[in-house]
């Protein structure tokens, strides 16, 4: 899921320390003027410890709140639930599960040496 890229500066932006994100929650980072919701998963399974980034803007509520949603899985898909009207968004693709026509931007994210990086 999470690529282990060669860090090419200018593309990958360091947003915070991994420790700044409580496992299974999200934070919002400002990356090149864009609000990005960055989530950290707990555990050590397949997705354990991975980080994911999608847009922070909730297209239904029209508010910057997705980073404050509850993280989990539905039928195996990693999702966050909007804290306002509870639609679910796939953490990897940004696809809304309830509305096939709605998808928020998804970004690559990774952890290197305890720091979280995102490409927008």
């Amino acid at each position: 899921m999470t690529a282990r890229p060669n860090l090419r500066l200018g593309e990958w932006v360091a947003v915070c320390r991994l420790d700044d994100i409580v496992p299974d929650t999200g934070v919002c980072a400002l990356v090149n003027g864009v609000q990005v919701a960055v989530f950290r998963l707990s555990g050590d399974g397949e997705d354990g410890g991975s980080v994911h980034a999608i847009a922070n803007f909730d297209p239904f509520a029209k508010a910057n709140v997705l980073s404050r949603g509850i993280v989990g899985d539905l039928k195996g898909e990693l999702v966050v639930a909007s804290p306002v009207y509870k639609q679910h968004f796939n953490l990897v693709t940004g696809q809304c599960l309830e509305e096939p026509g709605v998808r928020v931007a998804a970004f690559q994210a990774c952890v290197q040496a305890g720091t979280v990086f995102v490409i927008t």
Partner: peptide, 17 residues
Amino acid sequence: PLQDTNDYYLANMQKDG
């Protein structure tokens, strides 16, 4: 991580966040 945003921030989220 279990808390609804309202419980997480100990306040009620409004329509604009």
